[in-house]
């Protein structure tokens, strides 16, 4: 039974791989003449988006609505994990880290914070942005926890909950606030840069907390006698 299922999956997999390879192989030559090319449009409207990096312009302006929902996905994953973590001992102690890890963390974390700030600022005109900054900051928090310099998190208090939702709330508020101009997230060109920076700053904080939380709410006390 199991062997038959594997054989079936293998056969269908090979067929799918062959079909995909053929479809991908023949596309560039057969690309229909009417096909849309968004690249000139992205560049043409770049000066109305308030940022100069095209990927950031797509992420936060042209397709900013995708990003809004994506932040909701992350927030939701954290809430679902809180349910799994359940009621835990609120006095979770951090494990004792090895001396090497402790000195590494002490040396690295200031650099991590600096890097996070730089990435946030850089996002407007080169690769970078809130997500990258938040990921780096969260990595710093994980490092601190592994080194025993920061406790794992029990169920979140009001301030932590507020911090976790702040970025999403700011984003949602801006999106709705701009509805007066006719559409969600319809930035006025002269304010677009400032509003995007506001959203990105809020997101850096909240996503950093969220990504750190995905680790810190679930981690357990280890290695204690």
């Amino acid at each position: 039974m199991r062997g038959a299922a594997r054989l079936l999956v293998a056969t269908l997999g090979l067929a799918l791989a062959a079909a995909l390879t053929r479809a991908i192989g023949e596309l560039p030559a057969e690309r229909p003449s009417q096909a849309v090319d968004l690249r000139p449009q992205v560049v043409a409207h770049l000066d109305q988006t308030g940022v100069s990096h095209p990927v950031t312009a797509v992420l936060l302006d042209y397709r900013g609505y995708d990003t809004l929902l994506e932040v909701a996905v992350l927030a939701l994953a954290l809430i679902a994990l809180l349910v799994l973590a359940g009621a835990r001992d609120a006095r979770l102690c951090a494990p004792a880290g090895s001396p090497l890890l402790v000195s590494l963390a002490r040396g690295l974390v200031p650099v991590v914070v600096l890097t996070g700030g730089y990435l946030l600022w850089a996002g407007a005109h080169r690769p970078g942005g809130a997500f990258q900054a938040a990921a780096v900051l969260a990595a710093g928090a994980v490092l601190l926890q592994l080194a025993g310099l920061m406790p794992a998190w029990a169920s979140p208090g009001r301030w932590l909950r507020l911090g976790l939702m702040l970025g999403f709330g700011v984003f949602l508020g801006v999106a709705y606030g701009l509805l007066g101009r006719g559409a969600l997230l319809d930035y006025p060109p002269q304010w677009a840069g400032a509003l995007i920076l506001l959203i990105e700053t809020g997101l850096t904080l909240s996503l950093g907390l969220t990504l750190a939380g995905l680790f810190l709410f679930l981690t357990e006390r280890r290695g204690r006698p």
Binding site: A72, A75, I79, R158, R161, L162, L164, M165, F168, G169, L172, A175, Y176, L179, G180, R181, G182, A183, L184
Partner: peptide, 23 residues
């Protein structure tokens, strides 16, 4: 009147109360 746009409201309103309920 734009603030009462139903399509936008049907998405923004539940997102807002979800976040508020968490806080």
């Amino acid at each position: 009147a734009a603030y009462a746009d139903p399509s936008a409201g049907l998405i923004v309103l539940p997102l807002a109360w979800a976040a508020a309920a968490f806080v």
